[in-house]
Amino acid sequence: MSRKKIKAQLRVFKELENQLMTQADRLGVREHYTPIHMLELEHDALQQHTLAFYAERANLEYEMQMLGTDKKETLIKLERLHVYIKRAERMKMQYEKRIQMMLEKLMPEKENALKAAKKIKKISVSIGGRN
């Protein structure tokens, strides 16, 4: 697919998303769809696709070994699936990284908070102790 077509398709996705967001805004649930939530949606979808790819690969392997189907065709499919799976794994990592980064952005003083939590844990309070 040419670069121009890819850009056009991505623009279509963006437009669809914008329209749905406008509808969510009119419904009063715009704040529910934060950038993190959107990323999570994509991450979930990616996971589902990855699972589907794995299942398809298992099916193709079974088909090739047990049933007498066209091996050349199956091998080509397997090769394509391998590429897709690798790509999916890479994308999943990227998504996780981005989600993590966004969460860190939302909590800038996370380290300070953790330190404070540790200090709180260290403090022990005895109730009804000796005089």
């Binding site: 991505l10 996705f13 749905l20 769809y33 959107m38 949606l41 979930d44 979808a45 696709h49």
Partner: peptide, 9 residues
Amino acid sequence: LKQVASEKV
């Protein structure tokens, strides 16, 4: 939104 995300991915 879920569908768009899935298609996009």
